[in-house]
Design a protein around this nucleic acid. Structure first.
Lengths: 341, 341
DNA sequence: AGCCGATAATGAAACGTTTCAAAAATGCTA
DNA sequence: TAGCATTTTTGAAACGTTTCATTATCGGCT
C-alpha cells in the first residue's frame, strides 16, 4: 500500500540500470527485445507510474497547459474548458484551470501560479485590463493564446470573434424588421468585446439615422437596479421596440424582468441575445440569439498554441471567427407596424 | 526575455547562499532582517517565481488537487469546479481537472495521469463503475473524496445527497397534490444516484398503492426516441398526470418535447425536475425543482479532503446532505381534480 | 580580551527523471 | 581468432528546490 515505485525499483527488479529503464519506457532505440520485455514486466508487477514531476524538472516540458478564465459557471466558458480538456487528453496534455473572476490583480496571481508550475503554454481569456499579466507572460516568453475580450497586444496570438460585424448585422436585421428605437443592454463596458459590440450596434444605427435611434444601458450584476432601469426605459411614450442583451446572463435577467413587467415578446418588444443560452429554444416564444462558434474557437486556439509550442518564434497572428444570428420567434416587426397591418 | 531566474540567480544577486534564499522565501527563522531585505529585493528585480515543480519533487507536496468529473458542461459540475477553484486558490492549491465522460476506462486513464502528476489529493465524481479507479487510488494511498453516484466503498470518504429521501419527498408532494399516475424519466440507471432516486420514487408510490402508480422511462441522450416514448406514454387513456425529470439535461429535453406536443403545464401535466437548471424560473410557467445543495457539497468535500491530507489515517466517513423541493407553478393538481371543481 | 551560547549562514545531499559520454557486449570480416 | 564497427548498456550529471548537519558570526559576560 501507498507504494510509489520509482524507476530505480523497476531497474533493480528487471536487473538493469536506470538508464535502460528510461530508454525502454520512452522507447528510444537501443534496447534489446529481451531487456525491453523484462522491464515491461517489472513495471507491470510493481504498478509503476512514471513521475511526471521529475520528468518535468529534468526535461523542461510539463505537458500541462494553463487555462485562465473569468468563471466556469457560464456555459460558454464551461464548454471551452470541456473542449480543451478533450483535445489535451488526446495529445498527452493536462489542463490546469484557474479563475480570475474578471479581476486583474487576481488574474495576475493565478497566472503566476501557473507559470510557477511550469505550464508549457497558456490560454488566456483576459479581464478588462490584463496588461500586467500579459507583461509577465511576454517577459517569460510563455507561449500564450489570448481568446477574446481585449485590445490587441502585438506580442500575442489572438482568437476572437468579429463582435463588431456580428452585432452590426444583428442590429441591421432588427432595423430591417422595421424597428426604429433600439435598446442594447450590456454589462461590462471595459471589456473590448463589449466595446466592439457597441461599435457594431452604433455602426448600424448610424447608417440608418435619423429614423433609427439606439440607446445603451450599462449595468453590473445588480438585477434590481437593472429591472428599474428597464422598466423606466420601457414606460416612456416612444419606448424602444427591440431589446438586445449582450450575453446569456444578462439575457436571463432581462427575460425575468420582462416577465415580471408582463411585457411579452415579440408582440410588445423584439428580443435578441448575443451568446447562446441553452434555454433559448424553450422560453416562450423562443429566443433569437447570436451564436458563438465555440467549437471553432476552441480548436483554433488549441491548434495555434500547439503550433507555437513546436515553433516558438512564430509571428503573432490574429484569428477572427464569425458569429451568426440565429433567428427565432422572439424577433418580430415592431408593435406599431404590427397594428398598421 | 524568456528568462527563468532560479533560486541560484537570486542567491548570487543578493550575495547569499541558496540555503538562505530558501529560508527567506519560506520565512523560516534564522534569517537576519538585512539579508531578508536583500533577498526580497533580488527576487523582485529578477522577477523570480519559485519553481513549484522542483519544490514538489523535493518536498513531496504538489499542492495540486485533482478533480475528475464526467463533464463540465452541466451547470452542476461547472459550479462544483468553480467552488473548488476558489477554495483552492485561497489556500495555495491548484485544481487539475480531468474528464471521464462517464466511461470507466477513460476515467482510469485520466486518473492515472493525475496520480503521475503527484496530486496531493483527489475529488472524484465516479462513473457507473469506478472499481478499477478506486482500486488504483486505494493502492496508492491517494487521499480521495468521492462525491455522489456510486455504491459505497468502505475505503473512501463520501459526500452525497440523500437522493432516496429527496425523491421520496418530492414524489409524496406530487401525490399530496392529488396525482395518481406518475411518470419518472431517467437517463443512466447504472448510476447509483439514479438507482437511489428510483428507490425513493418507488417508496412513495408503494406507500400509496394501489391508488397511485408510478412508471419509469429510461433513455440515453437520443432525444427523438425519448420524444416518441413520451408521446406514447401521454397519449393513452389514463395517462400520467405528473412528469419528473431526473436531471437538468433531461428536463430541457422534456420541456422541448412537451412544447412540441403542445402539452402545457401545470394544466395538462405537473412538471418537476431533480437538479436545478438556471432556466427553471423563466420557462412558462416556472419549473419546480429539487435543488442540490451545491455549495455545501463543495465545501464539505473540500474540508474533508484537506483534513485527510493533514491526518491521513482518518477513518472513512460518509457525509450526507439534503436536497429540497423548491415548489413553483409547474406543480398543480391533476387535470381531473381540476375539472371537478 | 577571551569565551560561551545563541543566532545566522552555508553547502551538499536528496527528490525521480533524462541524457550523454563512455564502457561493454556483440557481430562481422579477414 | 584478432580487430573493428555496431549495437547495448551503464553510470553520473543535471534539473531547482528543501533540509540539515556544519561552520561562521555576533553579543554579552567575566
Amino acid at each position: 500500500m501507498n507504494s510509489k515505485p520509482t524507476i530505480l525499483d523497476v531497474a533493480r527488479r528487471a536487473g538493469v540500470s536506470v538508464g535502460t529503464v528510461s530508454n525502454a519506457l520512452n522507447d528510444r532505440g537501443n534496447v534489446s527485445a529481451a531487456r525491453r520485455e523484462n522491464v515491461a514486466r517489472a513495471m507491470a508487477d510493481l504498478g509503476y507510474v512514471p513521475n511526471r514531476v521529475a520528468q518535468t524538472l529534468r526535461g523542461g516540458e510539463s505537458h500541462v497547459i494553463g487555462l485562465c478564465t473569468p468563471v466556469t459557471s457560464s456555459a460558454y466558458f464551461a464548454a471551452l474548458l470541456e473542449m480543451f480538456e478533450d483535445l489535451a487528453a488526446r495529445q498527452g496534455y493536462e489542463i490546469m484551470q484557474v479563475l480570475s473572476h474578471g479581476e486583474p490583480a487576481l488574474e495576475l496571481r493565478r497566472v503566476q501560479a501557473l507559470v510557477g508550475r511550469n505550464v508549457d503554454g497558456l490560454i488566456l481569456i483576459p479581464t478588462h485590463d490584463s496588461q500586467a499579466t500579459l507583461d509577465l507572460l511576454a517577459e517569460r516568453g510563455m507561449p500564450t493564446v489570448v481568446v477574446d475580450r481585449v485590445a490587441r497586444d502585438p506580442r500575442f496570438d489572438y482568437v476572437a470573434i468579429d463582435d463588431r460585424r456580428a452585432m452590426r448585422e444583428a442590429t441591421q436585421h432588427l432595423i430591417g424588421l422595421g424597428h426604429r428605437r433600439l435598446l442594447y443592454l450590456v454589462r461590462d463596458t471595459r471589456l473590448s468585446t463589449t466595446q466592439r459590440r457597441i461599435e457594431g450596434y452604433r455602426d448600424a444605427v448610424r447608417a440608418a439615422r435619423p429614423t433609427v435611434t439606439g440607446a445603451v444601458i450599462q449595468r453590473d450584476s445588480d438585477e434590481a437596479a437593472l429591472a428599474r432601469q428597464v422598466a423606466d426605459a420601457i414606460a416612456v411614450p416612444r419606448a424602444p421596440t427591440a431589446l438586445i442583451a449582450s450575453n446569456s446572463a444578462l439575457a436571463l435577467s432581462l427575460v425575468r424582468i420582462l416577465q415580471q413587467l408582463r411585457v411579452s415578446w415579440p408582440d410588445d418588444v423584439a428580443l435578441l441575445a448575443f451568446d447562446e443560452p441553452v434555454w433559448a429554444p424553450i422560453v416562450t416564444p423562443p429566443l433569437a440569439v447570436v451564436r458563438h462558434p465555440t467549437r471553432q474557437i476552441a480548436t483554433e486556439a488549441w491548434n495555434r498554441l500547439l503550433l507555437r509550442l513546436r515553433t516558438p518564434d512564430l509571428r503573432p497572428k490574429r484569428i477572427t471567427l464569425q458569429a451568426h444570428l440565429v433567428p427565432a420567434a422572439s424577433l418580430g416587426p415592431p408593435r406599431s407596424t404590427h397594428r398598421a397591418r
